[in-house]
Write a protein that binds this DNA or RNA. Structure first.
Lengths: 195, 195
DNA sequence: TCAGTTCTGAACATAATGTTCATGTTCTGA
DNA sequence: TCAGAACATGAACATTATGTTCAGAACTGA
């Protein structure tokens, strides 16, 4: 059975809108971007915008969801290609930092100062989701002290979020591999039961 | 030398505004509250509002700052009163959870779903600040592996934030002492250098 | 080809923001 | 106690953004 592919016009429109948003965010941060600007840049009618998305925030959420899927996919590929054994846990984190580094202009504009409260909220949620996926798989054998799995996921996800934001708001001068290693060094001890 | 106390009218106005904001947030979340509603509730003129605060966000930020000071003070008292030795590190965290628990109505409304992106951003920052204060004091003797102190603060602060939000968004059924213990169990291992 | 989708564009109703100013009220210090 | 300074008022106003509507044009897939 073939998956019902969307009308080309739909794909085109949504792509244009996502692209316009990214470009504008890069120029002036998220909050101050207006729906009018987005549709002007995308060259799309106002009514069309609201036919696809409820609001600016909705468009953003849809963009973040795309990102999550992309990261998962990259992780899958990386694992399939064979990686050093100690890098298998939280494998997505490396992809995450790499991706952020590649798109540092957009990334930095997104999380800059006051600008991106909504972005941060979505990003935080995304990271916790990714972390949870991994922590759950380990929940069988090890740990099993009283700490709920969800609490661990929230803690580590939140920590990753903090680290990422900090790294991004600074000048990202720390190399990718180093932030990633730092994350691992901090996160992995939390997985072991209390001593 | 006497500290120049603020004009009573100023104190009164600001207090009314803070109070009105809290009450309204509790009723309908942060985002949807309007400046008009705040000044109606506080019974304060529109011009007056803008004489004190730049915006709704500014008023909120000022409220969070008050909270930070309160927590620091409570921590000081707790430490002075003598506490079990293993609770001295991150002593503010217990106060934090207790405080959140006491004001759970406001707290839950603040961080609920989409509503409070800005609130979360400020809260996150506040927690990292508090954590940093503590981590810095330990930076002398122990650790001193390559991990920057700031990175540790960001990680633990972010983790605490995640935990707090999760606990609050759920029904807060986990008892205060237990969340706090969980936080410690997860955070303290991160302070020890890599093995 | 053509029936069904999707896009357009401009107009419109609604709603919130932040500023201004002349006038009244309240505070503080001496 | 009082005068001058500081603060509060409130209504009007300019500005800016949002989200909806609709009739007709353009495009798509089969």
């Amino acid at each position: 059975m073939t998956v019902r592919r969307a009308d080309r016009r739909i794909q085109r429109t949504q792509q244009l809108l996502h692209g316009a948003l990214m470009a504008l965010v890069q120029e002036k941060g998220f909050e101050s971007v207006t729906v009018q600007e987005i549709i002007d840049r995308a060259n799309v009618g106002r009514a069309t915008f609201y036919a696809h998305f409820d609001s600016k925030d909705d468009l953003l959420a849809s963009g973040i969801e795309r990102l999550r899927v992309t990261l998962k996919e990259r992780q899958r590929q990386a694992l399939a290609a064979g990686v050093p054994d100690d890098a298998r846990l939280f494998a997505f984190s490396h992809e995450l930092f790499v991706h952020a580094n590649e798109h540092r202009a957009v990334f930095r504009a997104m999380i800059g100062k006051r600008s991106g409260a909504v972005v941060q909220q979505l990003l935080h949620k995304m990271l916790v989701d990714l972390v949870r996926d991994e922590v759950k798989q380990l929940a069988s054998a090890p740990a099993a002290d009283g700490t709920p799995v969800e609490a661990i996921a929230q803690f580590i996800g939140g920590g990753l979020f903090g680290l990422l934001i900090w790294w991004g708001n600074g000048k990202m001068r720390m190399p990718v591999d180093e932030v990633d290693a730092t994350f691992r060094r901090l996160a992995i001890p939390s997985l072991k039961p209390a001593d």
